[in-house]
């Protein structure tokens, strides 16, 4: 059996609606009906292999990524991380474990850092996503990116985009008064101490072991402002 054309389509980012979105100046309301409504066969309800061997279900989703409206038609199984990396070819967000155990995939969604590997792209209809590419570029570095370079807060570089997205969000979380495991007084406003930052950054593993330098890069920004 040859592969189905719809499958090939899923591998390609479909940005065709983007222009329409921009031109129309309005958000397109997308179908949220089950796949049957989109003309795809429903997976067989019983029989484990029958379901696994069933055709993928394709659905559409729109989100804003780094300030640009994006429209995708995706296999429902596609994570936000794979949508970014494979479909939008924004490969700055990394896949280190694909199970929420390392933090390399950290992006900022609607102002909150999340593990993009543990989120379906479809769950981000209408979301505003900021990835490492949206924070800064080699020619226009975000202050946190520049601080990481100055303090050598990275080595192999693979966890680095996640570390930086997290670091930016952590300073915001401290400013917003979110408590942490090491906050001595739950009711007091947390301060950007070394221990506070280390605890809050602990969801971003760096096997090269740049932690001490990352803490210093963050301290510099916490002190002088990002």
């Amino acid at each position: 059996m040859t592969h189905e054309p719809v499958a090939a389509e899923a591998a390609t980012p479909l940005l065709s609606r983007r222009d329409a979105l921009l031109a129309g100046g309005a958000t397109i309301t997308l179908a949220t009906a089950p796949a049957a409504a989109l003309g795809q066969p429903m997976p067989a309800p019983t029989g484990a292999d029958a379901q696994a061997a069933a055709a993928p279900v394709l659905m559409e989703v729109s989100m804003e990524v780094n300030g640009t409206a994006r429209h995708l038609r995706l296999d429902t199984r596609t994570t936000l991380l794979d949508a970014l990396r494979e479909h939008l070819q924004l490969t700055g967000s990394k896949k280190g474990c694909d199970h929420g155990q390392c933090g390399a995939c950290t992006v900022i969604a609607d102002g909150h850092r999340i593990n993009s590997c543990l989120s379906l792209a479809l769950m981000h209809e209408g979301s505003r996503i900021t990835t490492i590419e949206g924070l800064g570029t080699p020619d226009r570095l975000h202050p946190m990116q520049a601080a990481f370079i100055r303090h050598d807060g990275y080595q192999c570089g693979y966890c680095t985009p996640g570390q930086i997205c997290s670091a930016v969000a952590v300073l915001d979380e401290i400013r917003a008064g979110v408590p942490s495991h090491v906050s001595a007084d739950l009711e007091a406003a947390p301060a950007p101490t070394n221990m506070e930052m280390r605890e809050r950054m602990s969801g971003n593993i760096c096997r090269c072991g740049a932690y001490s330098n990352i803490a210093e890069a963050m301290a510099e920004l916490a002190e002088h402002g990002a």
Partner: peptide
């Protein structure tokens, strides 16, 4: 939930338990 003023003030054990778990990213989700 962990950051809610009422929870922090009156149900500290709950705030503490939540922030002891997982990571900042996972707790946001």
């Amino acid at each position: 939930l962990a950051a809610d003023r009422r929870i922090r003030k009156h149900y500290g054990v709950l705030s503490r338990a939540i922030v002891a778990g997982a990571s900042g990213q996972l707790r946001n989700k």
